[in-house]
Design a binder for these strands. Sequence first.
DNA 1: GATACATCCTCTAGCTGCTAGAGGTTCAAG
DNA 2: CTTGAACCTCTAGCAGCTAGAGGATGTATC
Lengths: 142, 142
Amino acid sequence: MLTIGTLSKKTGTKVQTIRYYEQIGLMPEPGRTEGGQRRYDNAQLDRLSFIRHSRQLGFSLDAIRELLDLSDHPNRPCDEADAIARRQLKQVEQRMARLKALRTELKRMVHECSGGRTGDCKVLEVLRDHSECLTEHEEIGA
Amino acid sequence: MLTIGTLSKKTGTKVQTIRYYEQIGLMPEPGRTEGGQRRYDNAQLDRLSFIRHSRQLGFSLDAIRELLDLSDHPNRPCDEADAIARRQLKQVEQRMARLKALRTELKRMVHECSGGRTGDCKVLEVLRDHSECLTEHEEIGA
DNA sequence: GATACATCCTCTAGCTGCTAGAGGTTCAAG
DNA sequence: CTTGAACCTCTAGCAGCTAGAGGATGTATC
């Protein structure tokens, strides 16, 4: 029987976050002591590890909900899990492409700054005038 | 004299967002008509373009606040603007590195999935057991 | 059995950066 | 003068947590 604190340490998830996962139905309601404190078993530890690892790989909580559901039904075909992972991969690739364009632009800004007064600062100038950019970049909402 | 809608179209910023920027003090309070509607001038259009462009380059609203302040004082040395841009560049590079590790892992997961039942799905298996990962990856909070 | 104190509990509010909607007013064209 | 698009304010919501108040519990030690 594990306390929430132990679970927290074992998975690297904050105590508050574990309670939050329970609240949104991602973690099941655990057993309680007479005094009302949560006690977990190993299955729940595994589940939290799964969640945590999926988060590290960038999956949304909604995607994780689906993945957990699939994981709970070993006899279903796994196309769906595969599709979710592919979707995630695609997203990651898109984000990388956008970041690449940003990096180019930022590098250029920084390299051209000559260290004078803000009045002639290349960094600020570029921000003032998008037409000075070589690449299209659209980071907002990434 | 520009309406908020015109400003919105010219900069690609939603009307609500412009009002939000005003609320948090990023945009100045504009003049108003007798009836209470906002009217902007070109200086304010420029300012919003600056904000918008900076957002596209991934700067936080706090960073933009600093950059705007620097831009308003052309006689100060521009080291600071340069530092903010360098910081941003560093962040972008860190995020790219993290995404790269993720991509590797996701690719591997997807390629190894043989299309059977969820019980033997490689995707789910990897999520269950971090030790199957080749790389360290820590996306959370990216 | 008493005491200390770390850990637990619930609840509310806050973070970033918007976005959406309700319910009502103003402006400009015809 | 009427219509209808665009404006106004206000509140609440999104993801995914995180922090803090104010109090109860569990366990180790004496």
